[in-house]
Design a binder for these strands. Sequence first.
DNA 1: AACTCTTATCGTATATCTACGATTAACGAT
DNA 2: ATCGTTAATCGTAGATATACGATAAGAGTT
Lengths: 109, 109
Amino acid sequence: MAHSKSDQFPAGDIQLAEWAKALAHPARVAVLKVLAERKSCICGEIVDVLPLAQATVSQHLKALKDAGLVQGTIDGPRSCYCLNTEALQRAREAMGAFFDHLDQASSCC
Amino acid sequence: MAHSKSDQFPAGDIQLAEWAKALAHPARVAVLKVLAERKSCICGEIVDVLPLAQATVSQHLKALKDAGLVQGTIDGPRSCYCLNTEALQRAREAMGAFFDHLDQASSCC
DNA sequence: AACTCTTATCGTATATCTACGATTAACGAT
DNA sequence: ATCGTTAATCGTAGATATACGATAAGAGTT
């Protein structure tokens, strides 16, 4: 039962933590950047850009998809990934509100 | 060698991922909020607020400290934690710049 | 049908995270 | 000096994460 206490936290905190978790690996940060830079959504080109094996990249893409930050549509023999701009907008706002909340504090020690 | 490929990513991505990792658990999000809400830095009151054991809270505090988001000074028998506002500011800016970068994309699929 | 290319998934090894009880360390109070 | 309080650390168990090779699944091509 080591990983089940998260349910006892506020839903907002859980959601924020999930989004943060999606960004908690440089590979996934890089993937999002690549998806943003190319206008059209690409597929396996991500594998060429990253220093990781194809299976590993697929796993990271799945993580981003599970977090809702990325959309994937099966398009013939190749998959098409692109950013989920609405979800990213929500994540951005949540992060912003979170940091705003923290900003009201004054350092003391 | 499963966890060593991170070195091959840009330093900015690694730093962003580290900050995100610090926020990637609802307990740590809650801890930061508590530290922000109370004007003065508190110590073991965090344990009372969170649904976790003292040892676990101490671990989460250490994670936040390692990420640089929190400062701790040993003050007599009790420890005094407070937010590292400069680091939080940098994290905030990095996150903001990151989301700005993503915003230039247009959804396609 | 057989082949090729692309991507997802499986299986696996290792590393890290999460959580807790127990112990230790540090300090103030008695 | 002893006691009590507070918090860090140790040890440990179980769950996730990370990474890869190997394999499977899907669609187009020959």
